[in-house]
Design a protein around this nucleic acid. Structure first.
Lengths: 113, 113
DNA sequence: CAATTACATTCGAATATGCTAATATTCAAT
DNA sequence: ATTGAATATTAGCATATTCGAATGTAATTG
């Protein structure tokens, strides 16, 4: 497999590598929503959400449609939703295999010596 | 869905968000390989590959088995391989939809004037 | 016990990412 | 034309990632 394809994949994974962007894609999985509704449902700063939408747009994971004052977003390809679902399955498998996993999640903070 | 689960997913995606780590997982998809063989097949710096293996280990995407002098790595859960395969399908879909995609891929290299 | 092989870890510099606050832009309505 | 609402962009700072160079650590061999 050519490295260009791997870089493409890595780019997509990078776009998925943030809980807010995952939340956005999940919210959009049932159909399009305006930026305003997304901001409201996420309960986060407008600029912050807009930046995350910008990342998803840049990687073509979402498309946007302007309607007057508003901008409606939707997922471009359902395959991405499938990836997220596969990930959930992965989570459950791992949960069964190692219950330490949850402790591990908190670890990054322990780096403070 | 709780945010902790999204953060877990994001963490895994972060681990996948590098072409070298994707290459490692692909190389391991047919069975375990020693760190040395991985380094050789990747043709990269020993320390660099070891660091990437460290990331994959930290996120439990791979497990390692010590045998004397060597360390053998293998993917912990095939689901991750499935995610990579889904991603390949995604790539092909996108390729059909927008041929600009390839231009986008080469862009970073064109910085050399 | 050297010396070597196979990996891992640490350090430091470069680059990338994420956030808030502030500012722009774009369309709508008065 | 002004104002207001919805969204995007920029600036600046803090933190994270990535890399090569150097160093550390086990196990192996002589």
């Amino acid at each position: 497999m050519p490295d260009s394809l791997r870089r493409f994949k890595a780019d997509i994974f990078q776009a998925l590598a943030h809980s807010t962007r995952i939340a956005i894609l999940e919210l959009l999985s049932d159909g399009e929503l305006s930026a305003g509704v997304l901001i409201e449902k996420l309960g986060m700063e407008q600029a912050n959400v807009s930046q995350h939408l910008g990342v998803l747009r840049a990687k073509h994971l979402v498309v946007n449609r302007k309607a007057g004052n508003q901008v409606f977003y939707s997922v471009r390809d359902r395959t991405i939703i499938e990836v997220l679902q596969l990930m959930r399955r992965y989570f459950h498998t791992q949960l069964k295999e190692t219950s330490d996993m949850l402790d591990e999640l908190d670890k990054p903070l322990e780096i403070v010596h």
